[in-house]
Amino acid sequence: MTGWDLQPQGISSVLKTTGEFAAKIEKHATSYGKHLQSAAENAGTISADGDSGGGGKGGEAKGGLVALALSQFAEHTTPDLKFIAARAGKSLNGAMDATTEYLKGGQHMAERAAQAQTKALSAPDLDPKKPGKQTG
């Protein structure tokens, strides 16, 4: 690879679009647990005496096998969704920081090149004994 050819406008557009999707993932991750909890509460129960739904005998908690499975599923998958959203955010910030540093470096190199060009184009001084000049 001979060099990089980054286009800040293109990078900005991609980061914006990706950021919008990452925000949607975060929004869905937040509502994810609520939806599973609602599904678990409305899944109904089955008991040995034929009672279904409504929480069973003696005020037992609502639930059953489906509710338990959904609860455990949410417990194990919610951290993964949160990680995906956090990873996306961190990756977006890293891409933005890398692009910024690349552009700063390019600007710094351009400034140094301009200084070198100005120095090279200046008239030569033929007086070697002028104060501030080094001989040898």
Rank of each mutant, 00 (worst) to 15 (best):
T100M: 12
A110E: 08
P79M: 04
D80T: 10
S47W: 02
Q7N: 13
A123H: 07
G59E: 03
K16Q: 13
L121H: 10
K133P: 05
A69K: 15
G136Q: 07
K104S: 06
G63W: 06
M109F: 10
F21C: 15
G50R: 11
D5V: 08
E60R: 15
K62A: 04
G50P: 06
I25L: 14
H35M: 06
T2V: 09
S13C: 08
K27S: 08
D5H: 10
G59T: 02
A39H: 04
G10V: 00
S71T: 15
H108F: 08
L81V: 01
L121K: 13
E26T: 05
Q9W: 05
H35Y: 08
Q107V: 13
S52Y: 14
A88N: 11
A114F: 00
T2R: 09
F21I: 15
G63V: 00
A29L: 05
Q107W: 11
G105Y: 05
L92N: 01
P131G: 13
L70T: 07
A48T: 14
K34E: 02
L68W: 00
T17C: 04
G53T: 01
I11S: 06
D97V: 12
P79A: 07
E41A: 11
Q117A: 08
S13I: 08
A48N: 12
K129D: 12
N93G: 15
